[in-house]
Nucleic acid binder design. Structure first.
Length: 771
DNA sequence: GTGTGATATCTTTTT
DNA sequence: GATATCACAC
């Protein structure tokens, strides 16, 4: 261990060695925060602390997994796997499965994801005959979520004058009613949404002192990563659990707080020393990740924020290259420029794809980038976006599993009662919902009870329903005696879902079938793998088979970012800045630096939000080890139509000493309308095509062309894959051709020169080899 | 009750 | 450009 400590700098070492009492570590970007956390856990184990007494909370499963792996390496002790390490949500879901019965929840409760929550809210709004445009599911959910994060229950909400008054004046007086109904329906469905996991943990600890005591005893040492991103509910859980031993260590960086929209309260970290007057604070200010240029540029950005803890991030690393800025006329061109730049750097500097990351503000921006990368044949991997577990066919099959495990799960029932179609339609479902409202029961209890249904349904429908119920019940009987894979496969086949998908021979249909196969394979792996879950009683023998409900509780909180890429091709990473938090890449491209996009439109109304956007930009910059490239487009397709964009204010906020401005930028813009892009409605739009035709005619007949030794081929014949000859660049290979008629553009790679985009009517390429 | 085509609304960011 | 909902025909 002592030589392990030698891997740390002085402040890191102090933070690691100070194991008892409250400690706060303010860790600047790239300052070795994860290192401190992992070494600290290793240090605790070294000192003989039982791993079952250590609780380490992270924000992503990925971070937890990585940390666990590293600790295993450092500590060289397999005991380390018994540390309670995971996200807030997964750790407290585990606790609620053990002790949630005290609150009336079964241990197999369902976790509703955002889609489930929204769909339930929509149903409630419909049932109350309210206007879904006024009561939008997404805004209702964020309001409810904000309440729960601040431990405000539906009852509290309705009693709170301020909240209800606000709803009345904003024309949504029934928000409180909806909240109440939503909470009630979730409970009846034995379901918790993401916020409930934290909310009910708080209730559990508040109302059952013996439970609080139990976990206080258990978690003698508590570590919290990304403390700046905790919300009130999380803060209070940690505070209560730590109250007995006060061996709490929080690590964070106020400059990287980017989850305010989710209720994260930056005050939690700013007030830590008020909560624990004896707390010792350590600052990690040396950055080991990035070049001086990057560190200084990032500092110059964050200096524009008013609320922050004082610290000076510095580095001993090289000066590095200046930040470059790419200006594109459109979002598509931005993609092309970025892909070209990646390609050039890769070739010139002999780098691999995985050394590059493209970061953007919104998921929607990935498309243009993706397209450009596809055209250039650069392998990439998108993080987030449409997660595997969010695909329809996967959600359908999972809904079967959910319903089998928890028949009360209303959203699962809704999803599959008529999928594949079995003649139980909208009207029938409506009747069922009405009945469940009247009898105060959940839909499954109604569906299961034939007597209930007899008065309102005809015999045919009644039969269809009872067949469905029998099927689900027969699955349930096998829950404990079949392993997860056998049962999952059985369900996929005998529910008819597999058949339904196989009948669809379109490429999408085949893909869906493959996805189901993939899910089944994942379950197979799971069934065969030994359980790694920490059991309440470590001495208890592991259960002989791994069941489907175990699988479901393990994946409920997985997100796409946690998915491992088994394909070992080297790929460029594409992700939102939020997802990039905690990661690092040698070369980072930050795209879409435009006003109203980054910073986003909705952040511009308040100083706090704008500062959060700025911190987001800070996070993006500090992901880079060697070089940052920024990009923006002058126009972009937003919800279908073209919008003009201004460069982001953040570009100007960077100290110009660290920025390599393109010479282009100071020249009059219209000189650079060198391609098919014309601003709609601008004075140019009517004239441009004509002018261009003329120019091209002239150039073809110009004297220069006449004396040229090479004879140009007809631009219309140029196709990707061809070898072509250019007057000054020499021979090259056509990678891509795009654009229409007179404005066809080719991307050509010239060995030794690099990749060039050429307007075919000017380029006068000669086809050398059309193979 | 089911399936098809038209249309409105959408975009922050995530557990 | 994509998805969710609605109107309409079978």
């Amino acid at each position: 261990m002592s030589d392990i400590l030698s891997h740390l700098n002085e402040s890191q070492r102090k933070a690691v060695e100070h194991t008892n009492g409250p400690v706060m570590v303010i860790a600047g970007a790239g300052s070795g925060k994860t290192r401190v956390l992992t070494y600290r856990v290793a240090m605790l184990l070294e000192k003989g602390v039982d791993p079952f007494n250590i609780l380490a909370l992270t924000f992503t499963n990925k971070a937890a997994r990585e940390m666990k792996e590293r600790i295993l390496t450092i500590a060289g002790n397999s005991e380390a796997r018994n540390v309670w390490m995971g996200t807030f949500h997964s750790i407290f879901a585990r606790i609620l499965r053990i002790d949630g019965h005290l609150l009336g929840y079964p241990s197999h409760f369902t976790i509703y994801d955002t889609d489930d929550s929204k769909s339930l809210l929509k149903a409630i709004v419909r049932e109350l005959n309210l206007d879904p445009k006024v009561y939008q599911a997404s805004s209702l959910l964020s309001r409810i979520s904000a309440c729960k994060s601040n431990l405000i229950s539906a009852g509290d909400y309705n009693r709170n004058e301020e909240l209800t008054e606000y709803d009345r004046t904003s024309g949504r007086p029934f928000t409180g009613t909806i909240f109440t109904k939503y909470a009630d329906r979730c409970f009846k469905a034995s379901a918790m949404d993401f916020d409930d996991l934290l909310y009910f943990t708080n209730i559990l600890l508040r109302d059952f002192p013996e439970i609080l005591f139990k976990y206080q005893q258990k978690f003698k040492y508590i570590l919290v990563d990304e403390y700046q991103d905790t919300n009130f509910a999380q803060y209070l859980i940690v505070k209560q659990l730590a109250a007995k031993h006060e061996n709490i260590c929080v690590v964070g960086d106020d400059a990287q707080s980017i989850y305010g929209f989710r209720g994260a309260n930056i005050q939690n970290i700013l007030n830590f020393q008020k909560d624990y007057p004896e707390a010792v604070a350590y600052k990690l200010e040396q950055n080991y990740r990035s070049t001086k240029v990057i560190v200084n540029a990032a500092n110059s950005i964050i200096a524009n924020n008013k609320t922050q803890l004082q610290k000076t991030i510095w580095t001993d690393n090289d000066e590095g290259t200046l930040i470059t800025l790419l200006r594109a006329s459109s979002d598509n061109e931005e993609g092309t420029l970025v892909a070209q730049s990646v390609f050039e750097n890769k070739m010139n500097l002999q780098l691999s794809n995985s050394q590059f990351a493209i970061l953007y503000r919104t998921n929607a921006q990935s498309r243009a980038i993706e397209e450009a990368f596809r055209k250039m044949n650069i392998p990439y991997r998108i993080y987030g976006g449409l997660s595997f577990y969010k695909r329809k066919e996967i959600k359908d099959l999972l809904a079967y599993f959910r319903l089998v495990i928890n028949p009360n799960d209303e959203e699962a029932l809704n999803r599959i009662i008529n999928y594949p179609a079995r003649g139980i339609g909208k009207t029938t479902m409506e009747k069922i919902v009405v009945l469940s409202g009247e009898k105060g029961k959940n839909p499954w209890q109604i569906v299961e009870n034939q007597q209930c249904l007899e008065p309102v349904l005809n015999l045919g429908t009644l039969h269809k329903i009872s067949d469905f119920v029998t099927m689900i019940n027969s699955f349930r009987m096998q829950l404990l005696n079949k392993n997860a894979y056998e049962l999952a496969r059985h369900i996929a086949l005998s529910s008819g879902l597999m058949k339904e998908l196989q009948e669809d021979a379109t490429p999408e249909g085949i893909n869906r079938t493959e996805n189901i196969e993939e899910l089944l394979n994942a379950i197979k792996d799971f069934s065969e793998k030994e359980s790694e879950t920490v059991f309440e009683n470590p001495e208890a023998p592991p259960p002989s088979i791994r069941t489907l409900d175990e699988f479901m509780s393990e994946i409920a909180l997985l997100t796409d970012a946690d998915e491992e890429d088994d394909d070992d091709t080297e790929k460029v990473s594409l992700m939102t800045i939020h997802q990039s938090k905690g990661l690092e890449f040698p070369y980072v491209y930050i795209v879409g630096l435009e006003e109203n996009l980054f910073p986003s439109l909705q952040s511009l109304s308040s100083r706090a939000d704008l500062e959060e956007e700025r911190r987001l930009f800070y996070v993006a910059l500090t992901r880079a080890e060697r070089k940052v490239t920024l990009a923006y487009a002058e126009s972009r397709y937003r919800w279908g139509n073209l919008t003009l964009c201004e460069p982001s204010r953040f570009i100007e906020e960077i100290d110009p000493r660290y920025l390599d401005l393109p010479k282009k930028i100071s020249t009059p813009k219209n000189l650079f309308y060198d391609d098919d892009f014309v601003k709609p409605g601008s004075a140019l739009s009517g004239f441009k095509p004509k002018n261009f035709t003329k120019v091209s005619e002239i150039s073809n007949k110009s004297p220069k062309a006449a004396i040229s030794t090479t004879e140009a081929s007809d631009p219309a014949l140029i196709q990707p894959g061809m070898e072509v000859l250019h007057q000054s660049f020499g021979q090259g290979k056509v990678i891509n051709v795009e654009g229409s008629e007179g404005n066809r553009k080719a991307t050509v790679f010239f060995p030794g020169v690099g990749q060039k985009q050429l307007l075919l009517k000017f380029a006068r390429l000669k086809i050398v080899n059309s193979a």
